[in-house]
């Protein structure tokens, strides 16, 4: 079971109080993009073992969206951070590196 802390309301809850919104930091390809780019945006998702970045919504709480960095193997949550960013902030990367020194951001 994941234990997530909502950065919007500060609630530390377990995952049934939240809803996962899939992979985070996806670049949208729409008007003016090639069919390949659009297909990739629409259908292709990374599926790494270990560190992932996801979007989550505090659906039974404050209702806000946020980001979470977690491990798919151990279910450890490294950090949660606000939804208004295009990439994981440096403190989040630092927290992941502290726990997973071998991990490289792609």
């Amino acid at each position: 079971m994941l234990l997530l802390k909502c950065p919007c309301c500060g609630v530390e809850g377990e995952e049934t109080e939240f809803h996962c919104g899939g992979e985070a930091h996806i670049r949208r390809h729409a008007t003016g993009s090639t069919d390949g780019e659009f297909a990739s945006y629409m259908f292709e998702r990374k599926n790494p073992k270990a560190v992932v970045f996801e979007r989550w919504r505090h659906v039974f709480g404050c209702g806000k969206w946020f980001h979470a960095a977690r491990c798919t193997v151990t279910l450890e949550v490294f950090a949660t951070y606000g939804a208004q960013v295009l990439a994981p902030p440096k403190p989040v990367i630092a927290k992941i590196k502290a726990r997973r020194p071998d991990w490289r951001q792609k």
Binding site: C9, V11, G13, T16, E17, F60, G61, C62
Partner: peptide
């Protein structure tokens, strides 16, 4: 004050 779920109800 806590917003959460009780059973399956918000």
């Amino acid at each position: 004050f806590r917003r959460t779920r009780l059973g399956q109800v918000a």
